[in-house]
């Protein structure tokens, strides 16, 4: 009887300690050198274009889709740097396809509440845009925010929302400077992250 009480007391005392250890050593804890490979896919909603004078107009594009692949390197548990490539396609009124392929550098902060992570980031780079046999390179900025569920030490899944801001710039005479546009696209993607 006395021995049984000692075992129960030991177990009772160890439970809080084990619980505390769970909270500190969750498997979404990252250290410098950890890497993450992100695959994203989802719909893109063309929002509007904006001229230098501020005039807003319809993009005249159908909703499209995007596919992306990113690699990030953790600098600490909450901050990572990386780069990636995306591909986006949508259609014009006459069925011509607009392709936008951004090559991006990105920074991401991850706010965490185990098992959830809330990555907030910003990407920048140049995008190769192609439409109706014409092609051009546009600089861009993409702020993004998302939510990820850390299923295991290696895999996270979630949703990312991004606002693509392309600067379609021309300096004349053809195309004219007045043909420059800021292009706003909204990207909502399902994301799968592999940590390695």
């Amino acid at each position: 009887m006395k021995r049984a009480l000692i075992v129960l007391a030991t177990l009772a005392l160890s439970f809080p300690a084990l619980a505390a250890q769970d909270q500190v050593l969750t498997f979404d804890h990252r250290v410098v050198g950890d890497r993450a490979l992100t695959i994203e896919m989802g719909p893109v909603l063309p929002l509007f274009t904006q001229s230098f004078l501020g005039t807003l107009a319809s993009t005249n594009l159908t909703p499209g889709g995007s596919l992306g692949l990113d690699v990030d390197f953790y600098l600490n548990d909450l901050f990572r740097l990386g780069g990636g490539i995306r591909g986006m396609a949508a259609f014009g009124p006459n069925g011509h396809t607009l392709f936008v392929v951004p090559l991006m550098f990105r920074t991401t902060w991850e706010l965490k509440s185990f098992p959830w992570s809330f990555p907030v980031g910003i990407s920048t780079g140049v995008a190769l845009a192609s439409y109706n046999s014409h092609a051009w390179m546009d600089p861009f900025v993409v702020p993004s925010a998302g939510v990820l569920w850390n299923m295991s030490p290696s895999w996270s899944f979630g949703l990312t929302a991004s606002e693509w801001l392309l600067a379609d710039l021309y300096f004349g005479p053809s195309p004219a400077t007045t043909d420059s546009r800021f292009v706003h696209l909204f990207d909502l993607s399902l994301a799968a992250v592999y940590h390695f």
Binding site: T49, N94, L128, A129, A135, P175
Partner: peptide, 25 residues
């Protein structure tokens, strides 16, 4: 990037400016 930029041909109209006025033929 240089090759990509060199191969770019913007056309006579800005890409998205042209899209703004495009209508179904």
């Amino acid at each position: 990037l240089s090759v990509l930029l060199g191969s770019c041909s913007p056309g006579a109209t800005g890409m998205f400016a042209g899209l703004e006025v495009e209508t179904k033929i």
